[in-house]
């Protein structure tokens, strides 16, 4: 046992550093001089929105993944469960984002198992921030930009529903009512702001059905002008993915329920 090991009391043992020690996760991308742009067009995907409503937080995302002008996939799932009460939704490059989600999911579990307690909400929010920061070099090189939303429910504090959005460098911002990211987000932000301010009720007061309708209308509007957003595919019957995080944990809304509300209130 060398001196360094003798002084290691396990304090450095967070999951990403364990992965790096074993060579399973690349080092933080270096930010150096860039002589040329990336020669590949990365697959990207986008429009994500989230807002607080009466039960908790609703997170919704369209299903389209694009590469330049090409639609790569029409059933991408960009709203990901990280643990029992946390959702990460991604806009940007899925390859990087899904890897981040995987690291994050394992990090939270690894922390709980090793430290024998849940990671705090602040700790979780910070962990994602750190992953984004480590990825910033790739984002600059044009091959791995990810701009996520993180929604969680902290039973220990009030208000319990917590919603954060990030920029590509890893800055975290806590949203009071709603957040949207991705190429279709300007339209969505407009709609959510309008609904929240001049709608029948503020977003935080509306019930689940009403929340689903707002999310569907917002995504449909986003896809109207933004080609990178799938919105609602009326022919192939592809609906956005919606998840709700509340005191009971995470609920993935069944597609039939979304379809029913869509046909009644949106179509």
């Amino acid at each position: 046992m060398d001196g360094k090991e003798a002084l290691d009391f396990g304090a450095s043992s967070d999951f990403p550093s364990l992965l790096r020690r074993q060579g399973l996760l690349g080092p933080a991308a270096q930010i150096g001089p860039m002589n040329k742009r990336a020669e590949i067009t990365p697959t990207e995907s986008t429009t994500i929105l989230a807002f607080k409503f009466s039960d908790g937080v609703l997170v919704a995302g369209d299903r389209r993944a694009t590469s330049g002008n090409t639609v790569v996939y029409d059933r991408a799932d960009k709203v990901l469960e990280i643990d029992r009460r946390s959702i990460m939704a991604i806009a940007g490059v899925p390859a990087t984002a899904w890897e981040m989600a995987r690291v994050l999911e394992h990090s939270f579990q690894f922390f709980r198992r090793t430290q024998l307690q849940e990671m705090s909400v602040d700790g979780k929010v910070r962990a994602l921030s750190k992953l984004l920061r480590d990825n910033f070099g790739f984002a600059l090189q044009g091959v791995g930009i990810v701009v996520p939303i993180f929604a969680t429910y902290d039973v220990k504090v009030s208000p319990s529903a917590r919603l954060y959005f990030y920029d590509a460098m890893g800055a975290q911002f806590e949203a009071t009512d709603f957040a949207a990211t991705g190429s279709g987000s300007p339209a969505v932000r407009g709609i959510l702001y309008y609904e929240n301010t001049w709608g029948k009720k503020p977003l935080q007061k509306i019930d689940q059905d009403e929340a689903v309708v707002v999310a569907l209308r917002a995504l449909d509007t986003a896809s109207e002008a933004d080609t990178a957003t799938g919105g609602i595919d009326r022919h192939a019957k592809i609906f956005p993915v919606m998840k709700i995080v509340s005191a009971d944990g995470i609920l993935t809304l069944p597609e039939e329920k979304i379809a029913e509300l869509f046909h009644k209130r949106v179509a």
Partner: peptide
Amino acid sequence: RMAAIELASSEGFT
């Protein structure tokens, strides 16, 4: 315990 968690976690992750 730590060794077991680390082994299982990196296996489950990769």
